[in-house]
Structure formats: structure tokens, C-alpha cells
Simulated assay, not measured.
Amino acid sequence: MSKHELMILENKKILFIAPSFFGYEHDIVAQLKAFGAHVDYFDERPFTSSVAKIFNRLNFKLFIKGDIENHFLKIYDMSIKNKYDFLFVISPETLEKKIIDKIKSTNNKMVSILYMWDSFRNKSNAKKVVSCFDRVFSFDPSDKISGIDIRFLALFYNNDFKLLESDKFNSTQYAVSFIGTVHSDRVKLAKKIMEQFQNRGLNTFCFYYCPSKLLFILKKIFTREFDYISFSEVSFNSMSKLEIKDVFINSNAIIDIQHPEQMGLTMRTIEMLGLNRKIITTNSDIQNYDFFNISNIAIVNRVAPIIPDGFIDSSYVQPDENIVNQYSIQSWLRTIFSEQ
């Protein structure tokens, strides 16, 4: 950041509302504070029980409406006291227009910013409140809403996924690895891809995560989504970022399977750019990004995910350092909070 860019956030007060998501919200808070801002963070989903999360996911908000309203009224009270300079919201599922308007009314100079790290297609509530914000960004280049200026901004890699000098001399243990949340056809595809390497006698690593045992059981009973995975194959405790990095540093390539209803690149994809690791992905839109290189990135079909011959054995081609830096968390926040 230049001196002028640092001054944008120096001593500014930021109200940050975002869903808890594997600790990325805390990485954002830490970086904003490193830029000199004062940050108050609140979870956008004011409940911790699995039942409440399922009600919210299924849009049965009537059962948790009281908890949601009380949560955001407390945030409004904080806004009256603190007179925030920025309201920064990520992928809202429960936040309502009337609350956003109340928060904004506490300081008529407040700049309100919305960032979507899920597609608007998958977040009906976000569509209802998008008009409340001064700036709107999405990780999905296909997101379009009539009358709304939606700026495309890819996700980021944080400092945990920045390649260190000591990492460069690490010998790999796995030909390919997959670590991710279970959804859609992910498990089916990941297993098909890993089988191709296992048939060659190569080591692979997989870690399938589900945030709720109850959710897993219900989907197992009532949907076909989890047909390709058993209860014993799933972990209900996530891995830490350092554990994930250790696996990836020990892998030649990482499998990335985006949600079929999204075009934007996953956080995992951007993290592999930071770690200089090959990617096997179902997202064909990756070829439109400035870091795309056929030596580093294999695009596979969701129906028949065949890995190109020689891909895993060839050397990684180092991207331009300036391009890699553009996807850091520092650069991401600079774009969001710039005065442009």
C-alpha cells in the first residue's frame, strides 16, 4: 500500500458483518487492523446450533426470527455509540434492509460495502438488500442484477497460504490431494480424479468435511447428494489452516470442485496461486484469469474428469510475482476500501 492508500483506513472505524467461515473473517479483521483501522466484527448468522443453521439454510427463519432481530438490534446500538466510517458486509443470509438502513442512519457519511463470496444465485436474501449498499463486489463474474453496479473482484489468499522460502525445498508426499466441504457432486468427482492416480500406484490425500452430523444424516436420507460417501468417511471437525497448508505443500496438485451454480473461483484456487501448487479444477472460467497456465492448471469435465497425460509429472511454471501479489488479502482489501 502507498502512503495515501494507508491513510484511507488509518484510524477509521469499521463495522464488519460476515458469516464465520473457517476463520477467514478473523484474517480480514487482522489485516484491517494492520492497516490502522478500528474494527468491530459480528457474525452475520447469530446462532450456533445445528438446528438453527438448518432452519436458516432452508429459509425457515420464522423459528429463529427473535434471535436474529435481537442480534442486529445490539449491533445497531453499537453503531449509535461508535459512528462507524464503514459498514462492510459479506454474503448476508439474515441481515434485513431495515437494519442496514438503521445502521446507516447513525452516520450520514458512512460508506456501505457489500462483498459476495457466494453467488447471488445462491443467496436470495442478499438480492433483497443489495440496493442498500454504496459499493457492491462479487467473486462471481457472472453475477448481474438490474440497476446495480456489481464489480467483479476475485477472492484472496491470506498470509497462511503465502509460499515461504523454506517451503520451496519441501519434497512432496502426495501426487494429488483434496480437502473440502461435502456438497453437490464434489465427493463423486474427487474420488473419480484420485482413482486415476491411485491406479498408477501414487499416494493421494482426501479430507471430506461436513459442518453438522444432523445435516449429513438428513441429506443422506432425503437427497442423493451424499450417495458417494459414508458416515465414516466424513469429518465433522475442520482442519486448521496450518494443517491444510502442510498437506498442500506436500502435494503436487490440488483438486478444486466448485459448486455447479457458481462461476467464481473458490478460495482454494486462489490459495494454490499463493502456494505455487498445481490445480485440477472443474471451473472452466479459470482460463480467463491472468494467472492461467496450462502447465499449472488442468480443467476437467464434471461428467468425465480425465487428467491430461503428463500433467502431474511436469514442472510448475512460476507465475509473474506482480500477478500473484494482486490476489493477496492486502490487495483485495485495498480494492474494496479504495476511494475509486
Rank of each mutant, 00 (worst) to 15 (best):
F231R: 13
F205D: 02
K241S: 05
T204Y: 06
C206Y: 11
K213Q: 14
K220A: 06
N199A: 05
Y208L: 11
N237I: 14
A190L: 03
F207Y: 15
I193W: 07
K192S: 14
S232P: 00
N199P: 00
V176C: 06
C206E: 14
N203L: 11
S235E: 10
E243N: 11
R186I: 09
S238Y: 08
S184N: 14
I217N: 03
E243K: 13
V187I: 14
E243D: 14
S232I: 11
K192H: 12
T204A: 04
Y228S: 14
K188L: 08
K245Y: 06
V234F: 08
R224N: 15
R224Y: 05
S238W: 01
K191D: 08
S240G: 06
I221P: 06
I217S: 07
D227L: 09
V176Q: 01
L189N: 13
N199T: 05
D227R: 12
K191Y: 03
R224I: 11
Y228F: 14
Y174R: 05
F236L: 08
E225G: 05
S230C: 07
L189V: 15
C206P: 00
F248Y: 13
S240R: 07
D185Y: 09
Y208A: 01
R200P: 00
F216Y: 15
N203R: 09
K213W: 02
S235P: 00
V187N: 07
V247N: 02
S240W: 06
F236Q: 02
L242V: 14
M194L: 14
S238Q: 10
A175W: 04
E195F: 04
Q198N: 09
S235Q: 10
F236C: 07
R224C: 05
V187F: 03
N237M: 10
Y209C: 07
I179C: 01
K219S: 09
F216V: 12
M194D: 03
R200N: 11
K219A: 04
K188W: 03
L202Q: 12
R200K: 15
H183T: 02
V247P: 02
N237F: 08
F226V: 11
F226R: 08
G201F: 10
I249V: 09
R186Y: 11
V247I: 15
I229D: 04
L242Y: 02
F231T: 03
N250P: 05
I249W: 03
Y228L: 02
S177K: 02
F205G: 04
L242I: 14
S230I: 01
T204I: 13
D227W: 05
Y208G: 02
E225F: 05
A190K: 04
S184I: 02
I179P: 00
K245M: 06
S184W: 09
N237V: 13
F178T: 01
G180W: 09
